[in-house]
Simulated scan of single mutants.
Amino acid sequence: MSFLLKISSLIDRLNQAVGRAVAWLTLIVVVVSATNAIIRKVFSISSNAWLELQWYLFGAIFLLAAGYTFLRNEHVRVDVIAQRFSRKTQTYIEILGVIFFLLPACLLVFWLSVPYFYKSYVLLEQSSNTGGLIRWPVKLLIPVGFGLLALAGLSHLIKSIGFLMGKCPDPIAQAEAMQKPEEDVAEEIRKHAEAKLEAHRQHIEKGAV
């Protein structure tokens, strides 16, 4: 189990590195989208390449960050029933979910998407739109994204079994602890924005008087 936990730690580091890198793509998408809109409105110039770049980047964010999202326990959960059970029972449910649902689905999509990407790469597939981009890089995102998600599921499985054996902390509790610093920052930003709005409101009221 000690060896498996080391593998789990390496997988988590990989997904964390990918997730942090992908986070910057959000800013790039905003810049590309805004630039494209401004050029189209001001100069009446449009480019299929720029439009497709936005779609490619959005796909990269969605697919490559899936494993990171799972690591941080920020994916959608429907646990109305499970949350009523003990933590140990919930962990057994987590293990069954990963083994019978998450891993099979990820591995199936990975297996089917590899030849899908390879065919596009060999043919150097181009967009059907005039001036569009090549297609194989965005198709590569599918096996890579689901591969990272499968690795995250494997890591979670190892940590869940380790938790039941008393070899490591609760992986869900660890994920919640990872979320807290970001929540604190968001709360601080919210309070700062509210304070500025309140100061602006008071300034307007004084001016009116």
Score class of each variant (00 low, 15 high):
Pro137Ile: 00
His203Phe: 11
Tyr121Gln: 06
Ala199Gln: 09
Leu148His: 00
Lys196Ile: 14
His156Gln: 01
Gly153Cys: 04
Ile61Trp: 01
Ala23Phe: 12
Gln174Trp: 11
Ala150Phe: 03
Gly166Val: 15
Ile99Trp: 06
Ser86Trp: 09
Val138Cys: 13
Phe117Gly: 03
Ser113Trp: 10
Ala150Trp: 01
Ser155Val: 01
Lys159Trp: 06
Tyr92Phe: 08
Lys191Cys: 14
Phe117Asp: 03
Glu182Cys: 10
Arg72Gly: 10
Gln83Ile: 05
Phe146Lys: 00
Pro137Gln: 03
Glu194Lys: 08
Val18Asp: 02
Phe100Trp: 08
Leu4Pro: 06
Ile45Glu: 12
Ala173Cys: 13
Val185Asn: 07
Ser47Trp: 15
Glu187Tyr: 15
Leu112Gln: 08
Ile99Cys: 13
Pro169Arg: 12
Leu148Ser: 00
Arg190Asp: 13
Val114Ser: 07
Ile99Arg: 12
Leu102Gly: 04
Glu187Gln: 15
Arg77Phe: 07
Gly147Pro: 01
Asn15Thr: 00
Leu112Asp: 05
Val114Ile: 15
Gly131Phe: 09
Trp55Glu: 09
Ser9Asn: 05
Arg87His: 12
Pro143Tyr: 04
Phe70His: 03
Asp79Ile: 07
Gly153Ala: 08
Leu107Glu: 02
Lys167Gln: 02
Tyr56Pro: 02
Phe163Met: 09
Glu188Arg: 10
Val76Gln: 11
Lys196Gly: 14
Thr69Asp: 06
Lys180Phe: 13
Trp111Ile: 13
Gln179Phe: 05
Ala34Arg: 08
Ile134Phe: 10
Ser33Ala: 13
Gly207Gln: 04
Leu108Cys: 11
Asp79Cys: 13
Leu10Ala: 12
Ser127Glu: 03
Gly132Ser: 14
Val30Pro: 04
Gly97Ala: 08
Lys206Arg: 13
Glu52Val: 09
Leu112Lys: 09
Leu63Lys: 04
Ser47Arg: 13
Ser33Gly: 09
Val98Asn: 00
Phe62Cys: 03
Pro143Ala: 04
Ser9Lys: 01
Pro169Tyr: 12
Leu25Ala: 05
Ile7Tyr: 07
Lys6Gly: 02
Gly166Ala: 08
Val209Thr: 15
Phe85Val: 12
Ala17Arg: 07
Leu154Trp: 03
Ser86Lys: 07
Leu53Met: 10
Cys106Asn: 03
Ser128Phe: 08
Ser160Asp: 09
Tyr92Arg: 04
Ser2Arg: 11
Glu182His: 06
Met1Val: 10
Thr35Cys: 10
Ile11Asn: 01
Ile93His: 05
Ile158Cys: 02
Lys159Glu: 03
Ala66Val: 01
Leu157Phe: 06
Leu154Ser: 05
Gln179Met: 10
Lys191Leu: 12
Leu53Phe: 07
Ile158Leu: 05
Ile161His: 03
Leu151Ala: 00
